[in-house]
Simulated assay, not measured.
Amino acid sequence: MLIILLKYLKNYFKYLNYFLIDFKIRSMMTLITSFSITFYLIPIFIHYFNKNKISQIIRKDGPITHFTKKKTPTMGGIIILLSIFISVIIWSDLSNKYILYILFITFLYFIIGFIDDFYKIILKNSIGLTAYKKIFLQSIANIFFILSIIIDYKKKLYIQFIIPFTHHIIIYNINIILYILLCYFIILIMSNAVNLTDGLDGLAIMPIIFIALGLIFLSYLTGNIYFSKYFNFIYVENSTELIIICLSIIGSGLAFLWYNAYPAKIFMGDVGSLPLGCLVSVIAILIKQEFLFLIMCIIFIVEFISVIIQIIKFKYNKKRFFLMAPLHHHYELKGISESCIIIRFWIISLILIFFTFIII
Protein backbone atom coordinates (compact mmCIF):
# COMPACT_ATOMS: atom_id res chain seq x y z
CA MET A 1 0.00 0.00 0.00
CA LEU A 2 2.85 2.36 0.86
CA ILE A 3 4.43 1.79 -2.56
CA ILE A 4 1.20 2.61 -4.39
CA LEU A 5 0.75 5.74 -2.29
CA LEU A 6 4.31 6.92 -2.90
CA LYS A 7 3.92 6.47 -6.64
CA TYR A 8 1.25 9.19 -6.56
CA LEU A 9 3.31 11.39 -4.26
CA LYS A 10 6.73 10.79 -5.82
CA ASN A 11 7.12 14.44 -6.86
CA TYR A 12 6.62 15.61 -3.29
CA PHE A 13 8.67 12.98 -1.45
CA LYS A 14 11.42 12.21 -3.93
CA TYR A 15 14.14 10.95 -1.54
CA LEU A 16 11.71 9.34 0.89
CA ASN A 17 10.12 7.56 -2.05
CA TYR A 18 13.43 6.00 -3.10
CA PHE A 19 14.23 5.02 0.48
CA LEU A 20 10.93 3.28 1.21
CA ILE A 21 10.52 1.55 -2.15
CA ASP A 22 13.93 -0.13 -1.82
CA PHE A 23 13.28 -3.87 -1.39
CA LYS A 24 15.87 -4.36 1.35
CA ILE A 25 14.38 -1.55 3.41
CA ARG A 26 10.87 -2.94 2.96
CA SER A 27 12.03 -6.44 3.92
CA MET A 28 13.69 -5.19 7.09
CA MET A 29 10.70 -3.05 8.03
CA THR A 30 8.30 -5.96 7.43
CA LEU A 31 10.22 -8.11 9.89
CA ILE A 32 10.36 -5.32 12.48
CA THR A 33 6.70 -4.36 12.03
CA SER A 34 5.30 -7.90 12.28
CA PHE A 35 7.48 -8.72 15.30
CA SER A 36 6.60 -5.48 17.10
CA ILE A 37 2.84 -5.76 16.59
CA THR A 38 2.68 -9.34 17.84
CA PHE A 39 5.10 -8.75 20.71
CA TYR A 40 3.11 -5.73 21.93
CA LEU A 41 -0.43 -7.08 21.45
CA ILE A 42 -0.03 -10.64 22.79
CA PRO A 43 0.26 -9.57 26.49
CA ILE A 44 -2.88 -7.42 26.07
CA PHE A 45 -4.63 -10.36 24.43
CA ILE A 46 -3.54 -12.73 27.24
CA HIS A 47 -4.79 -10.30 29.90
CA TYR A 48 -8.16 -9.88 28.18
CA PHE A 49 -8.71 -13.64 27.74
CA ASN A 50 -7.66 -14.37 31.34
CA LYS A 51 -9.99 -11.68 32.63
CA ASN A 52 -12.92 -13.11 30.65
CA LYS A 53 -11.92 -16.72 31.39
CA ILE A 54 -11.60 -17.66 27.71
CA SER A 55 -9.15 -20.54 27.63
CA GLN A 56 -8.03 -23.67 25.83
CA ILE A 57 -10.48 -26.57 25.73
CA ILE A 58 -8.52 -29.74 26.50
CA ARG A 59 -9.53 -32.99 24.78
CA LYS A 60 -10.86 -35.46 27.37
CA ASP A 61 -8.89 -38.39 25.95
CA GLY A 62 -5.62 -36.43 25.83
CA PRO A 63 -2.54 -36.86 28.01
CA ILE A 64 -3.19 -36.23 31.72
CA THR A 65 -0.42 -33.62 31.85
CA HIS A 66 -2.39 -31.42 29.45
CA PHE A 67 -5.16 -30.77 31.97
CA THR A 68 -2.84 -28.31 33.69
CA LYS A 69 -3.14 -26.15 30.53
CA LYS A 70 -6.92 -25.80 30.64
CA LYS A 71 -6.72 -22.19 31.89
CA THR A 72 -4.24 -21.12 29.19
CA PRO A 73 -5.70 -18.54 26.75
CA THR A 74 -6.14 -19.64 23.16
CA MET A 75 -6.81 -18.02 19.74
CA GLY A 76 -3.46 -16.21 19.75
CA GLY A 77 -3.47 -16.81 16.01
CA ILE A 78 -5.71 -13.75 15.73
CA ILE A 79 -2.73 -11.57 16.65
CA ILE A 80 -0.35 -13.53 14.39
CA LEU A 81 -2.60 -13.09 11.36
CA LEU A 82 -3.39 -9.47 12.23
CA SER A 83 0.34 -8.75 12.39
CA ILE A 84 0.98 -10.50 9.06
CA PHE A 85 -1.85 -8.68 7.30
CA ILE A 86 -0.88 -5.23 8.63
CA SER A 87 2.83 -5.58 7.82
CA VAL A 88 2.16 -7.04 4.35
CA ILE A 89 -0.42 -4.39 3.47
CA ILE A 90 1.95 -1.61 4.55
CA TRP A 91 5.22 -2.84 3.08
CA SER A 92 4.35 -5.05 0.10
CA ASP A 93 3.48 -4.03 -3.42
CA LEU A 94 -0.28 -4.62 -3.49
CA SER A 95 -0.29 -4.35 -7.26
CA ASN A 96 1.45 -7.75 -7.25
CA LYS A 97 -1.23 -10.35 -8.01
CA TYR A 98 0.48 -13.02 -5.89
CA ILE A 99 0.15 -10.89 -2.77
CA LEU A 100 -3.57 -10.44 -3.37
CA TYR A 101 -4.12 -14.16 -3.98
CA ILE A 102 -2.37 -15.06 -0.76
CA LEU A 103 -4.10 -12.46 1.40
CA PHE A 104 -7.50 -13.53 0.13
CA ILE A 105 -7.22 -17.29 0.69
CA THR A 106 -5.42 -16.75 4.02
CA PHE A 107 -8.31 -14.56 5.15
CA LEU A 108 -10.80 -17.31 4.20
CA TYR A 109 -8.83 -19.84 6.24
CA PHE A 110 -8.66 -17.34 9.09
CA ILE A 111 -12.47 -17.21 9.11
CA ILE A 112 -12.70 -21.03 9.09
CA GLY A 113 -10.25 -21.28 12.00
CA PHE A 114 -12.07 -18.55 13.92
CA ILE A 115 -15.42 -20.34 13.54
CA ASP A 116 -13.80 -23.60 14.67
CA ASP A 117 -12.29 -22.03 17.82
CA PHE A 118 -15.49 -20.09 18.52
CA TYR A 119 -17.51 -23.32 18.48
CA LYS A 120 -15.06 -24.93 20.90
CA ILE A 121 -15.28 -22.05 23.36
CA ILE A 122 -19.08 -21.67 23.15
CA LEU A 123 -19.86 -25.40 23.21
CA LYS A 124 -17.09 -26.15 25.73
CA ASN A 125 -15.68 -29.12 23.81
CA SER A 126 -12.44 -29.86 21.96
CA ILE A 127 -14.12 -30.79 18.65
CA GLY A 128 -15.36 -27.45 17.27
CA LEU A 129 -16.40 -27.80 13.65
CA THR A 130 -16.86 -31.40 12.57
CA ALA A 131 -14.26 -32.76 10.17
CA TYR A 132 -16.76 -32.80 7.29
CA LYS A 133 -17.82 -29.20 7.81
CA LYS A 134 -14.22 -28.03 8.10
CA ILE A 135 -13.11 -29.88 4.95
CA PHE A 136 -16.15 -28.56 3.07
CA LEU A 137 -15.30 -24.93 3.93
CA GLN A 138 -11.62 -25.49 3.16
CA SER A 139 -12.52 -27.07 -0.17
CA ILE A 140 -14.51 -24.01 -1.24
CA ALA A 141 -11.55 -21.75 -0.41
CA ASN A 142 -9.04 -24.06 -2.14
CA ILE A 143 -11.02 -24.46 -5.35
CA PHE A 144 -11.69 -20.74 -5.60
CA PHE A 145 -7.96 -20.01 -5.24
CA ILE A 146 -6.85 -22.72 -7.67
CA LEU A 147 -9.33 -21.68 -10.36
CA SER A 148 -8.13 -18.08 -9.98
CA ILE A 149 -4.49 -18.96 -10.63
CA ILE A 150 -5.43 -21.31 -13.49
CA ILE A 151 -7.20 -18.44 -15.24
CA ASP A 152 -4.23 -16.19 -14.55
CA TYR A 153 -1.58 -18.69 -15.71
CA LYS A 154 -3.50 -19.23 -18.96
CA LYS A 155 -3.10 -23.02 -18.83
CA LYS A 156 0.69 -22.92 -18.31
CA LEU A 157 0.44 -25.33 -15.41
CA TYR A 158 3.95 -26.50 -14.63
CA ILE A 159 4.99 -28.80 -11.82
CA GLN A 160 8.70 -29.08 -11.08
CA PHE A 161 10.31 -32.26 -9.76
CA ILE A 162 13.90 -32.26 -8.60
CA ILE A 163 15.93 -35.45 -8.55
CA PRO A 164 18.00 -35.37 -5.32
CA PHE A 165 21.76 -34.87 -5.60
CA THR A 166 21.77 -34.39 -9.36
CA HIS A 167 21.64 -31.40 -11.66
CA HIS A 168 18.74 -32.88 -13.60
CA ILE A 169 15.45 -31.13 -12.95
CA ILE A 170 12.30 -32.36 -14.63
CA ILE A 171 9.55 -29.88 -15.47
CA TYR A 172 6.14 -31.21 -16.43
CA ASN A 173 3.31 -29.34 -18.11
CA ILE A 174 0.49 -31.36 -16.60
CA ASN A 175 -3.19 -31.92 -17.16
CA ILE A 176 -5.46 -29.26 -15.68
CA ILE A 177 -7.48 -31.76 -13.60
CA LEU A 178 -4.32 -33.29 -12.14
CA TYR A 179 -3.00 -29.82 -11.34
CA ILE A 180 -6.22 -28.87 -9.52
CA LEU A 181 -6.15 -32.08 -7.46
CA LEU A 182 -2.47 -31.70 -6.59
CA CYS A 183 -2.82 -28.10 -5.43
CA TYR A 184 -6.07 -28.87 -3.63
CA PHE A 185 -4.59 -31.69 -1.56
CA ILE A 186 -1.35 -29.83 -0.80
CA ILE A 187 -3.27 -26.93 0.75
CA LEU A 188 -5.86 -29.13 2.45
CA ILE A 189 -3.38 -31.60 3.93
CA MET A 190 -0.80 -29.02 5.02
CA SER A 191 -3.31 -26.70 6.70
CA ASN A 192 -4.76 -29.60 8.68
CA ALA A 193 -1.32 -31.10 9.34
CA VAL A 194 -0.12 -27.87 10.97
CA ASN A 195 -3.36 -27.82 12.96
CA LEU A 196 -2.77 -31.38 14.21
CA THR A 197 0.88 -30.66 15.05
CA ASP A 198 -0.06 -27.66 17.16
CA GLY A 199 -0.56 -29.79 20.28
CA LEU A 200 2.50 -28.89 22.34
CA ASP A 201 3.97 -25.55 23.38
CA GLY A 202 5.77 -24.02 20.40
CA LEU A 203 5.77 -27.30 18.47
CA ALA A 204 4.12 -25.97 15.30
CA ILE A 205 5.24 -22.33 15.13
CA MET A 206 8.99 -22.97 14.97
CA PRO A 207 8.85 -25.37 11.98
CA ILE A 208 6.60 -22.81 10.26
CA ILE A 209 9.33 -20.20 10.81
CA PHE A 210 11.96 -22.58 9.37
CA ILE A 211 9.77 -23.30 6.35
CA ALA A 212 9.25 -19.56 5.80
CA LEU A 213 13.05 -19.18 5.77
CA GLY A 214 13.28 -21.91 3.15
CA LEU A 215 10.57 -20.26 1.06
CA ILE A 216 12.49 -16.96 1.18
CA PHE A 217 15.42 -18.72 -0.48
CA LEU A 218 13.22 -20.45 -3.06
CA SER A 219 11.24 -17.28 -3.82
CA TYR A 220 14.47 -15.41 -4.46
CA LEU A 221 15.81 -18.08 -6.81
CA THR A 222 12.59 -18.46 -8.80
CA GLY A 223 12.07 -14.69 -9.01
CA ASN A 224 15.55 -13.98 -10.33
CA ILE A 225 15.84 -14.75 -14.04
CA TYR A 226 19.59 -15.46 -13.83
CA PHE A 227 19.51 -17.69 -10.74
CA SER A 228 16.43 -19.54 -11.96
CA LYS A 229 18.22 -20.29 -15.20
CA TYR A 230 21.40 -21.36 -13.39
CA PHE A 231 19.53 -23.75 -11.07
CA ASN A 232 17.15 -24.75 -13.88
CA PHE A 233 14.14 -23.53 -11.89
CA ILE A 234 10.90 -22.31 -13.42
CA TYR A 235 11.19 -18.52 -13.59
CA VAL A 236 8.22 -16.90 -11.85
CA GLU A 237 8.16 -13.19 -12.55
CA ASN A 238 7.73 -10.91 -9.52
CA SER A 239 7.78 -13.82 -7.07
CA THR A 240 10.53 -12.15 -5.01
CA GLU A 241 7.76 -9.97 -3.54
CA LEU A 242 6.61 -13.09 -1.69
CA ILE A 243 9.69 -12.69 0.51
CA ILE A 244 7.79 -9.86 2.22
CA ILE A 245 5.08 -12.31 3.29
CA CYS A 246 7.64 -14.88 4.44
CA LEU A 247 9.37 -12.26 6.58
CA SER A 248 6.06 -11.23 8.11
CA ILE A 249 5.49 -14.88 9.09
CA ILE A 250 8.95 -15.05 10.66
CA GLY A 251 8.58 -11.77 12.55
CA SER A 252 5.14 -12.50 13.97
CA GLY A 253 6.08 -16.16 14.58
CA LEU A 254 9.17 -15.30 16.62
CA ALA A 255 7.25 -12.77 18.71
CA PHE A 256 4.48 -15.30 19.32
CA LEU A 257 7.03 -17.97 20.26
CA TRP A 258 8.27 -15.62 23.01
CA TYR A 259 4.96 -16.28 24.80
CA ASN A 260 4.15 -19.70 23.34
CA ALA A 261 7.44 -21.37 24.33
CA TYR A 262 7.22 -24.00 27.06
CA PRO A 263 5.45 -23.44 29.40
CA ALA A 264 3.09 -21.58 27.06
CA LYS A 265 1.20 -18.51 28.22
CA ILE A 266 -1.01 -18.63 25.12
CA PHE A 267 -1.92 -21.02 22.28
CA MET A 268 -2.51 -20.03 18.66
CA GLY A 269 -5.63 -22.17 18.18
CA ASP A 270 -7.12 -23.22 14.85
CA VAL A 271 -7.47 -19.55 13.93
CA GLY A 272 -3.66 -19.51 13.69
CA SER A 273 -2.63 -23.01 12.65
CA LEU A 274 -5.08 -23.46 9.75
CA PRO A 275 -4.26 -20.19 7.91
CA LEU A 276 -0.51 -20.53 8.56
CA GLY A 277 -0.49 -24.00 7.01
CA CYS A 278 -2.50 -22.65 4.09
CA LEU A 279 -0.23 -19.61 3.76
CA VAL A 280 3.06 -21.49 3.32
CA SER A 281 1.38 -24.01 0.99
CA VAL A 282 0.05 -21.29 -1.30
CA ILE A 283 3.47 -19.60 -1.49
CA ALA A 284 5.06 -22.90 -2.54
CA ILE A 285 2.40 -23.43 -5.22
CA LEU A 286 2.80 -19.93 -6.63
CA ILE A 287 6.59 -20.30 -6.97
CA LYS A 288 6.19 -23.81 -8.47
CA GLN A 289 8.21 -25.55 -5.76
CA GLU A 290 5.70 -28.05 -4.42
CA PHE A 291 8.19 -30.93 -4.36
CA LEU A 292 10.82 -29.13 -2.29
CA PHE A 293 8.09 -27.71 -0.07
CA LEU A 294 6.84 -31.20 0.81
CA ILE A 295 10.37 -32.18 1.83
CA MET A 296 10.57 -29.18 4.17
CA CYS A 297 7.19 -30.15 5.64
CA ILE A 298 7.91 -33.82 6.42
CA ILE A 299 7.40 -33.20 10.16
CA PHE A 300 3.85 -32.00 9.52
CA ILE A 301 3.18 -34.74 6.98
CA VAL A 302 4.30 -37.47 9.40
CA GLU A 303 2.02 -36.03 12.10
CA PHE A 304 -0.88 -36.06 9.63
CA ILE A 305 -0.17 -39.62 8.47
CA SER A 306 0.03 -40.83 12.09
CA VAL A 307 -3.57 -39.69 12.61
CA ILE A 308 -4.74 -41.42 9.39
CA ILE A 309 -2.99 -44.66 10.39
CA GLN A 310 -4.53 -44.52 13.86
CA ILE A 311 -8.05 -44.02 12.45
CA ILE A 312 -7.73 -46.82 9.86
CA LYS A 313 -6.20 -49.23 12.38
CA PHE A 314 -8.90 -48.57 14.97
CA LYS A 315 -11.74 -48.95 12.46
CA TYR A 316 -10.24 -52.21 11.17
CA ASN A 317 -9.76 -54.11 14.44
CA LYS A 318 -10.60 -51.66 17.27
CA LYS A 319 -6.92 -51.49 18.22
CA ARG A 320 -4.54 -48.52 18.17
CA PHE A 321 -1.29 -48.44 16.22
CA PHE A 322 0.10 -45.59 18.37
CA LEU A 323 -0.53 -45.03 22.06
CA MET A 324 -2.16 -41.79 20.95
CA ALA A 325 -2.23 -39.72 17.77
CA PRO A 326 -0.87 -37.36 16.53
CA LEU A 327 2.64 -38.74 16.90
CA HIS A 328 3.86 -36.22 19.49
CA HIS A 329 1.24 -37.52 21.95
CA HIS A 330 2.55 -41.06 21.39
CA TYR A 331 5.99 -39.95 22.56
CA GLU A 332 4.45 -38.13 25.54
CA LEU A 333 2.75 -41.32 26.71
CA LYS A 334 6.04 -43.19 26.31
CA GLY A 335 7.43 -40.93 29.02
CA ILE A 336 9.44 -38.42 26.98
CA SER A 337 9.14 -34.91 28.41
CA GLU A 338 7.20 -32.29 26.47
CA SER A 339 10.14 -29.90 26.14
CA CYS A 340 12.35 -32.74 24.85
CA ILE A 341 9.82 -33.70 22.16
CA ILE A 342 9.46 -30.07 21.08
CA ILE A 343 13.20 -29.44 20.74
CA ARG A 344 13.76 -32.69 18.86
CA PHE A 345 10.97 -31.87 16.40
CA TRP A 346 12.53 -28.43 15.88
CA ILE A 347 15.92 -30.01 15.18
CA ILE A 348 14.45 -32.42 12.63
CA SER A 349 12.57 -29.56 10.96
CA LEU A 350 15.75 -27.50 10.65
CA ILE A 351 17.65 -30.49 9.25
CA LEU A 352 14.94 -30.88 6.59
CA ILE A 353 15.43 -27.25 5.52
CA PHE A 354 19.19 -27.78 5.17
CA PHE A 355 18.54 -31.04 3.32
CA THR A 356 16.34 -29.14 0.85
CA PHE A 357 19.15 -26.66 0.20
CA ILE A 358 21.58 -29.54 -0.35
CA ILE A 359 19.22 -31.11 -2.91
CA ILE A 360 19.16 -27.84 -4.85
Score class of each variant (00 low, 15 high):
residue 271 V to G: 06
residue 194 V to T: 10
residue 356 T to V: 13
residue 31 L to F: 14
residue 109 Y to P: 10
residue 164 P to A: 05
residue 324 M to H: 04
residue 209 I to L: 11
residue 331 Y to G: 04
residue 19 F to P: 03
residue 297 C to A: 15
residue 6 L to C: 03
residue 124 K to I: 00
residue 337 S to R: 13
residue 343 I to F: 15
residue 111 I to G: 01
residue 346 W to I: 09
residue 305 I to N: 02
residue 318 K to L: 06
residue 298 I to M: 14
residue 96 N to D: 11
residue 50 N to D: 05
residue 229 K to I: 10
residue 129 L to H: 02
residue 191 S to I: 11
residue 6 L to D: 01
residue 45 F to C: 09
residue 70 K to F: 07
residue 2 L to M: 15
residue 96 N to T: 11
residue 358 I to Y: 13
residue 145 F to Y: 15
residue 14 K to N: 01
residue 249 I to G: 00
residue 350 L to V: 12
residue 143 I to E: 08
residue 148 S to K: 14
residue 224 N to C: 14
residue 259 Y to D: 09
residue 48 Y to A: 07
residue 56 Q to V: 07
residue 107 F to E: 00
residue 218 L to V: 09
residue 355 F to L: 15
residue 21 I to H: 01
residue 299 I to L: 15
residue 323 L to I: 04
residue 351 I to C: 07
residue 49 F to P: 11
residue 323 L to N: 10
residue 351 I to F: 12
residue 297 C to P: 05
residue 291 F to W: 10
residue 150 I to F: 06
residue 269 G to Y: 03
residue 181 L to D: 14
residue 360 I to K: 13
residue 238 N to M: 02
residue 125 N to C: 05
residue 296 M to I: 11
residue 89 I to Y: 12
residue 30 T to C: 05
residue 317 N to V: 04
residue 176 I to A: 05
residue 117 D to W: 03
residue 170 I to A: 04
residue 293 F to M: 12
residue 100 L to M: 06
residue 74 T to A: 07
residue 104 F to D: 00
residue 268 M to F: 07
residue 179 Y to Q: 02
residue 94 L to W: 06
residue 112 I to N: 08
residue 90 I to L: 11
residue 283 I to C: 13
residue 272 G to C: 15
residue 237 E to T: 09
residue 69 K to P: 08
residue 253 G to N: 08
residue 317 N to S: 13
residue 15 Y to M: 01
residue 139 S to V: 09
residue 255 A to L: 01
residue 171 I to Y: 04
residue 90 I to V: 11
residue 174 I to C: 05
residue 92 S to E: 08
residue 211 I to V: 15
residue 122 I to V: 11
residue 36 S to E: 06
residue 102 I to K: 00
residue 262 Y to G: 07
residue 96 N to M: 13
residue 202 G to M: 05
residue 242 L to C: 04
residue 348 I to F: 14
residue 257 L to K: 09
residue 73 P to S: 01
residue 269 G to W: 03
residue 235 Y to V: 12
residue 75 M to H: 13
residue 281 S to P: 04
residue 20 L to G: 01
residue 103 L to I: 14
residue 88 V to I: 13
residue 95 S to C: 01
residue 18 Y to W: 02
residue 104 F to K: 01
residue 234 I to Q: 07
residue 335 G to W: 12
residue 71 K to R: 09
residue 250 I to Y: 12
residue 162 I to M: 12
residue 151 I to A: 06
residue 318 K to Q: 10
residue 343 I to M: 14
residue 54 I to L: 15
residue 75 M to I: 13
residue 143 I to R: 07
residue 240 T to A: 13
residue 3 I to E: 15
residue 142 N to L: 03
residue 16 L to P: 02
residue 110 F to M: 01
residue 107 F to T: 00
residue 194 V to R: 05
residue 92 S to D: 10
residue 25 I to S: 00
residue 6 L to M: 02
residue 293 F to G: 09
residue 149 I to E: 01
residue 28 M to R: 02
residue 166 T to I: 12
residue 318 K to N: 14
residue 257 L to G: 08
residue 114 F to Y: 07
residue 304 F to I: 10
residue 97 K to Y: 08
residue 230 Y to V: 01
residue 306 S to N: 04
residue 134 K to F: 09
residue 243 I to H: 10
residue 65 T to G: 12
residue 134 K to V: 10
residue 212 A to D: 01
residue 66 H to K: 09
residue 19 F to W: 05
residue 102 I to P: 00
residue 261 A to G: 02
residue 91 W to E: 04
residue 78 I to W: 07
residue 290 E to C: 15
residue 129 L to T: 03
residue 130 T to P: 02
residue 187 I to D: 10
residue 31 L to N: 04
